[in-house]
């Protein structure tokens, strides 16, 4: 079974972001970028499926500028066999990303597609579900366990209040939650080998997808600063403030 993994280049999660002075967007110049943490978990799961003999080939795909190839090389170093880069300098919203991925799915015919549950930049949590809808496939979102049994997939999902297990007919789409696995680090020899693995570059036009969105980003601003609080001297004072001033208990 071929497994397709979608990865996204995002700002490194340790970076404290800055909003541009003109409020047009977040300032990404000279900021450290990395693979989205949930995508790392997706790559790890695909590689583990290969190690178990379930997956025969792992294909990593990304959509974004030229520099996003760094993240594809990372995926290759972690164990993906080959990569596909859909290169575009435009801002790609989730719907367009899902349409592009649906075309890749149509071309590649994977048995399973794994994505992160959300990207830590836009925080949308949409692409996997949209891809499932467009490709006409079932979805196992927020997965904390994935078991392939013949032509079925058992997915344990993290839902509000606990866990839910669903059975999906393959091919299917899975999005990863934090508990699914602990991603490995790329080893130096693998990073060197990854440079020789195949990486195809396509454009949205090649795939026949219009990237433009009907969503307009009007403004990006910093969240309201919290007012400076006070220090209390004792537990009694704290309880009193919470009861009588803040009225939260």
């Amino acid at each position: 079974m071929k497994v397709l993994v979608a990865v996204k280049r995002v700002i490194d999660y340790n970076v404290k972001i800055r909003v541009k002075a003109d409020h047009s967007d977040v300032d990404l110049t000279n900021v450290k970028m990395a693979m989205n943490p949930f995508c790392e978990i997706a790559v790890e799961e695909a590689v583990r499926l290969k190690e178990k003999g379930v997956a025969t080939e792992v294909v990593a795909v990304t959509i974004g500028p030229k520099a996003a190839q760094e993240q594809l090389r990372t995926a290759l170093a972690l164990g993906a066999d080959r990569a596909i880069h859909v290169e575009t300098e435009e801002r790609v919203e989730s719907l367009a990303a899902a349409k592009l991925l649906a075309k890749v799915v149509e071309e590649e015919q994977p048995g399973l597609v794994i994505l992160g549950k959300q990207a830590i930049d836009t925080d949308n949590n949409q692409t996997g579900q949209m891809l499932a809808a467009l490709a006409g496939l079932p979805q196992g979102t927020f997965a904390s366990e994935v078991v392939v049994e013949g032509d079925k997939l058992q997915v344990t999902r993290e839902i509000d209040g606990g866990l839910q297990t669903v059975e999906l007919t393959l091919p299917a789409i899975v999005t990863t939650d934090l508990r699914l696995n602990e991603p490995r680090y790329a080893k130096l020899p693998d990073i060197m080998k990854a440079k020789k693995k195949p990486l195809d570059v396509k454009s949205p036009a090649d795939l026949g997808v219009e990237v433009a969105s009907k969503l307009t980003l009007l403004k990006v601003e910093s969240p309201a600063e919290r007012k400076g609080g006070i220090k209390v001297g004792s537990v009694d004072e704290l309880v009193d403030k919470l009861k009588n001033e803040a009225k939260v208990i």
């Binding site: 719907l95 949409q126 579900q129 949209m130 809808a133 979102t141 839902i159 509000d160």
Partner: peptide
């Protein structure tokens, strides 16, 4: 988790953003 699971499917099938 229910809303996040279901709504993007609806948006994509109606060809709109969420």
């Amino acid at each position: 988790t229910t809303g996040k699971n279901v709504l993007p499917r609806v948006a994509a099938l109606k060809d709109v953003s969420q």
